[in-house]
Simulated assay, not measured.
Amino acid sequence: MMQTIVGWHVDLEFSEDEDTGKTKASCLVRLPDGTELRGHGRAKRHPDDMEQQRVGEEIAAARALNELCRNLMKKAGHEIEEATHIPAHIAM
């Protein structure tokens, strides 16, 4: 049986401009070592599309989380390189 020894919480915040159909998302994770990593994403509704706030939030959030993922992979790669003194190649 696996035991959970740590948990991470990701915060997502959105801002929207109803006039332009633009949605922005920002995400933040605080790691146990005190590091804060962030990601940002945007979505823009086509002027001919009907307004669907949730869809814009989902797209912007996915893009923000994708950036956060890349930042976390970079951090892990740097930590591996510091410990091993060998270039790290982490696949996504």
Rank of each mutant, 00 (worst) to 15 (best):
E57D: 01
H85S: 10
S15L: 10
A61N: 04
T35Q: 15
H40P: 00
E81F: 05
D48C: 07
M92D: 04
M50A: 09
D11I: 14
A60N: 01
H40K: 07
D19Q: 07
I80H: 08
A83P: 06
A61C: 09
H40W: 08
L65K: 08
R63E: 06
L72C: 11
E58L: 06
G56V: 03
R45N: 04
L65I: 05
L31C: 08
F14G: 00
D48K: 13
L65P: 05
G7E: 15
D19F: 13
K44L: 12
I59H: 04
L65N: 06
E79N: 08
V10D: 03
A62G: 15
Q53P: 04
T35Y: 07
G56Y: 03
G56L: 04
C27P: 04
V6K: 02
T23D: 01
P47F: 11
R42T: 10
I90L: 15
P47D: 13
E51Q: 12
E57V: 00
A43M: 00
R42Q: 09
A76K: 08
A61Q: 04
R30Q: 15
L65V: 07
K74R: 15
I5Y: 09
A43I: 00
V29T: 09
I90E: 02
A83L: 05
N66F: 15
H40D: 07
C69M: 14
G21P: 02
S26F: 03
M92A: 07
E81Q: 13
L28I: 12
H40S: 05
G34S: 10
T84C: 10
R30D: 14
G39M: 04
T20E: 06
H78M: 08
M73P: 03
Q52I: 11
I86W: 07
H85G: 03
E36Q: 14
M73N: 03
V29P: 06
K24C: 11
